[in-house]
Simulated scan of single mutants.
Amino acid sequence: MPNSAPGRLRGGAPEAGRLPPRDDGPFVEAAWLYYHDGLNQTEIAERMQISRASVVNYLAEARSRGWVRVHLDSDVFRGHRLAAELCAAYGLAEAQVVPDDPVDPAGTGRVTRAAADWLPRLLAPGDRLGVSWGATVYQMAQQVPQFPVPDLTVIQLLGSRPAALGFAPEACTAMLAQRLGGQCINLHVPLILSDKGLRDALCAEPVVQAQLEALATCNKTVLACGTCDAEAHVVRSGILDPEGIAAYRAQGAEGVICARLIDAEGRPVITEVESRMIGVSLDQMRDKDMALLVAAGPGRARPARAALRGGFVTHLTTSTSIAKELLEMTP
């Protein structure tokens, strides 16, 4: 990262287990000289009368403590030629195209980081943000900066699903609410019940009914669109089995939005668990003021295209390789 890379310093009491305040000075001073004054590491070493290796360690410590956040302005990615072509081809309001990582071409880190930096700029006071789930959304949520949005409400879009995957729906929602300073509304019910009658009875409970009414009021969403293969999130979390997803794929299923399957045109592919599921409907996911799709990882071009064609997306963050695949397909 160049010496002139933008950064942000933020103070505050050190967390438990960290060095006492009197020891923070060298880390703050080194970070200030590097990120605000534009000095290089050799110049900082001379100014502070320490070794260059110490400067490197101080800067690394300042970043690990969360005092410094370095980012590229999202305008860089939105100005990419492929971003303009995606907007024209698919009728998007805006798109970001992030360079593929040469070390890890199948990695998702660059895309989720770019989406995390962009999301706060897409929100306004009073917005009601609906949050999908999955590894991509969870990874993005972890990287969103502390950026309070006045009067923001962050809403879980589907019920919970016990799974040892580390990215439950309530975790994605709560993390985004905390980082964006918003009120959090979790949907405190299972995603899938054992029978439709039990599902309907639970939905009729006043507290659950109020939560379902809240998710219907979202004017903005952040989502991913999963694959329909044997490694799909809906398979790994036990919603469908490999044989089941293969059968639905044979019926035309190409993507998964909030545990609901869609075909290549974004139309519903009804599964046998739908009548027992509690969460946002596909109709409720369409036609939002802003809907940010984060498309990252192997095999995500076709699901992303299905979501784009189905009217679930207004804004897109993706990688160069996926952008090229999307443009090679018939929009």
Results as ranks from 00 to 15, higher is better:
residue 99 P to S: 10
residue 83 A to P: 00
residue 104 D to S: 10
residue 95 A to M: 04
residue 93 A to L: 08
residue 92 L to E: 11
residue 101 D to A: 12
residue 92 L to D: 03
residue 108 T to R: 00
residue 82 L to P: 07
residue 96 Q to L: 15
residue 89 A to W: 09
residue 88 A to H: 05
residue 111 V to G: 09
residue 99 P to D: 13
residue 82 L to G: 13
residue 100 D to M: 08
residue 112 T to L: 02
residue 108 T to G: 02
residue 96 Q to R: 08
residue 84 A to G: 10
residue 107 G to A: 13
residue 86 L to D: 12
residue 83 A to T: 06
residue 109 G to F: 09
residue 87 C to T: 12
residue 98 V to E: 07
residue 80 H to M: 11
residue 114 A to W: 07
residue 112 T to K: 00
residue 84 A to H: 07
residue 100 D to P: 07
residue 114 A to T: 10
residue 82 L to Y: 08
residue 82 L to D: 14
residue 101 D to V: 10
residue 83 A to K: 01
residue 103 V to A: 09
residue 86 L to F: 10
residue 85 E to T: 06
residue 89 A to K: 03
residue 80 H to R: 10
residue 90 Y to T: 03
residue 87 C to G: 05
residue 110 R to Q: 11
residue 95 A to T: 05
residue 105 P to H: 13
residue 108 T to Q: 07
residue 105 P to L: 15
residue 107 G to H: 08
residue 103 V to P: 00
residue 92 L to Q: 02
residue 84 A to F: 01
residue 102 P to Y: 13
residue 85 E to H: 01
residue 91 G to H: 03
residue 110 R to M: 09
residue 113 R to D: 15
residue 83 A to D: 03
residue 103 V to S: 02
residue 104 D to P: 03
residue 104 D to T: 12
residue 82 L to K: 08
residue 107 G to L: 10
residue 114 A to N: 12
residue 93 A to G: 05
residue 84 A to K: 07
residue 90 Y to P: 04
residue 101 D to K: 11
residue 104 D to K: 07
residue 92 L to P: 02
residue 98 V to F: 03
residue 114 A to P: 04
residue 81 R to S: 12
residue 95 A to C: 04
residue 87 C to P: 01
residue 105 P to K: 12
residue 97 V to G: 11
residue 105 P to A: 14
residue 105 P to N: 15
residue 87 C to W: 04
residue 97 V to N: 14
residue 92 L to A: 09
residue 102 P to N: 14
residue 86 L to Q: 05
residue 97 V to W: 08
residue 80 H to K: 09
residue 97 V to Y: 08
residue 110 R to H: 07
residue 94 E to P: 00
residue 95 A to V: 04
residue 107 G to K: 06
residue 94 E to H: 07
residue 93 A to Q: 09
residue 83 A to Q: 02
residue 106 A to H: 08
residue 113 R to M: 05
residue 105 P to G: 14
residue 99 P to R: 05
residue 97 V to Q: 12
residue 84 A to E: 09
residue 107 G to V: 14
residue 87 C to E: 11
residue 99 P to F: 09
residue 94 E to Y: 01
residue 107 G to F: 09
residue 82 L to H: 06
residue 86 L to P: 05
residue 112 T to R: 00
residue 84 A to C: 03
residue 86 L to K: 05
residue 93 A to E: 14
residue 84 A to P: 00
residue 91 G to N: 08
residue 94 E to M: 06
residue 111 V to T: 15
residue 103 V to G: 00
residue 112 T to M: 00
residue 83 A to N: 03
residue 85 E to L: 04
residue 85 E to K: 03
residue 88 A to W: 01
residue 106 A to D: 14
residue 103 V to M: 00
residue 82 L to I: 14
residue 113 R to W: 12
residue 106 A to C: 04
residue 84 A to Q: 12
residue 102 P to L: 14
residue 91 G to D: 00
residue 98 V to A: 06
residue 87 C to R: 11
residue 113 R to V: 01
residue 84 A to R: 06
residue 86 L to T: 10
residue 83 A to M: 01
residue 88 A to T: 12
residue 109 G to D: 15
residue 101 D to F: 12
residue 83 A to G: 00
residue 88 A to L: 01
residue 97 V to C: 11
residue 92 L to F: 06
residue 101 D to W: 13
residue 92 L to C: 04
residue 80 H to S: 15
residue 107 G to R: 05
residue 88 A to M: 01
residue 88 A to N: 05
residue 99 P to W: 11
residue 98 V to C: 02
residue 112 T to Q: 03
residue 91 G to E: 01
residue 112 T to V: 15
residue 103 V to Q: 02
residue 97 V to A: 11
residue 98 V to R: 03
residue 109 G to T: 15
residue 87 C to D: 04
residue 95 A to N: 02
